[in-house]
Amino acid sequence: MKLAAVIDRLELCPFAVEDREIEVTGAYCGDLLSDVLAHVEAGALWFTIQNHLNIVAVGQLKDVACIVIVNDVAPDPQTVSKAQALGVNLCGSSRGSAELCMELARLPEFSP
């Protein structure tokens, strides 16, 4: 499923989206950076409440398809500019992680 479709279906708000055509192959949900570093897979959509600079570094390092900051938390301005600079896709949502994950799993295109 392409990122553009995910953004559309989950009604995400793009903060910095370089590549809309990238394939989203999975998802991960976590707010502890060390845990995410250890477990997130390349191509994943990463849901988190964290909004600081370090999430971009983690996103780039692990080649995630897109970072989604949940629960209406605004990203740090620095976070957005770094995401743009590094070409890391960054979106936001007014909804919580659980709700977004549950909805993503119900999309027919995303079913295993």
């Binding site: 991960y28 659980a98 994950c101 909805e103 993503l104 799993a105 119900r106």
Partner: peptide, 12 residues
């Protein structure tokens, strides 16, 4: 399960 896996099973 991971957080996403748990949520997605519940969603389905």
């Amino acid at each position: 399960l991971s957080m996403f896996e748990a949520c997605s099973r519940l969603g389905r």
